[in-house]
């Protein structure tokens, strides 16, 4: 775990406070600076607030005052309630917020997910939304988490959770073609083993790595994700693939299909460590156009 010295943390907090208090000005004129500060990591005490500003969920909430409460008191469709209820105890079960059945964390999770099925009845509930909502609830109250979830589902990862899951399959193909550029060795190996991107990237992307990376890395990735969008998810995926399968040395011990899948499931802690991972993500030579 990377320890930020207390003094640095205090400095960052005051910088972030200044930004949040003059948000429109910063967004208009110094977006690069915001991005840089997100890459360095948002101070934990301000993270929840910052995510709401970055995602635009704060504005969304203000434009829709009372909407969440309206949805909150509606009963919801039984078919969605059933699936959601079955998932409540399966999200971060060892986090103190979600540890007890029917506890506040699980109750709020239910409210947020149910509200979404009423907000977008044609989309309903997709199971990968639960970990996303749970991470949000660790940082903000239910109403705020709801609007942040809305932004993620509609602005950041549009189509990821909708009926046919077409967007995630398309992004799997895009990830794979980017890998060709970033790490031809890893690309060749995965092609040879006939390992479809769906097999390793679905959970990575749909849960925005919240179930894959160590916690401190999840937060750092999300800080950048909220600022820069889905390309961060692609970059993280590419870094993980490159450092897991990107050299003939690494491939020696995972020559078969099964060994490769195992390796991708049990990623090396070294490559997931926050400082290493964030640096690699920033430096990865992929351009927007590719």
């Amino acid at each position: 775990l990377e320890e930020v010295p207390l003094e640095v943390l205090r400095q960052r907090e005051s910088k972030w406070l200044d930004m949040l208090n003059n948000w429109d000005k910063w967004m208009a004129k110094k977006h690069k600076k915001i991005r840089l500060r997100c890459q360095k990591g948002i101070p934990p005490s301000l993270r929840g607030r910052a995510w709401q500003y970055l995602s635009g969920s704060k504005v969304k909430l203000e434009q829709n005052m009372g909407k969440f409460d309206e949805l909150d008191v509606l009963p919801g469709e039984p078919k969605w309630l059933d699936v959601i209820e079955r998932d409540l105890h399966r999200q971060f079960p060892f986090h103190e917020m979600f540890v007890s059945r029917g506890g506040h964390g699980q109750q709020d999770l239910f409210r947020v997910l149910k509200a979404y099925t009423l907000y977008r009845p044609e989309e309903g509930y997709c199971q990968a939304q639960a970990p996303i909502a749970a991470v949000l609830l660790m940082h903000m109250p239910a109403e705020q988490a709801f609007w942040c979830l809305v932004q993620i589902c509609e602005k950041y990862l549009p189509g990821y959770y909708s009926e046919k899951l077409e967007a995630i399959q398309l992004d799997g193909q895009i990830l794979f073609s980017l890998l060709h550029k970033v790490s031809p060795v890893a690309y060749k190996h995965l092609s040879k083993q006939k390992i479809d991107p769906i097999l390793y990237m679905t959970e990575w992307f749909m849960c925005a790595f919240s179930r894959t990376l160590p916690w401190s890395s999840v937060l750092r990735v999300w800080d950048m994700f909220f600022c820069e969008g889905v390309k961060i998810i692609f970059r993280v995926g590419l870094v993980l693939l490159k450092h897991t399968l990107g050299s003939s040395d690494k491939l020696k011990s995972c020559q078969g299909q099964y060994e490769t899948m195992e390796r991708l499931r049990a990623l090396s802690p070294k490559i997931m460590q926050e400082t290493f991972l964030v640096q690699e993500v920033i430096e990865l030579p992929v351009t927007e156009r590719q």
Partner: peptide
């Protein structure tokens, strides 16, 4: 474990 997370996509065992 009663707490296994819901499977997203596809998983694999041998």
């Amino acid at each position: 474990s009663p707490h296994l997370a819901a499977t997203v996509g596809m998983d694999y065992q041998v």
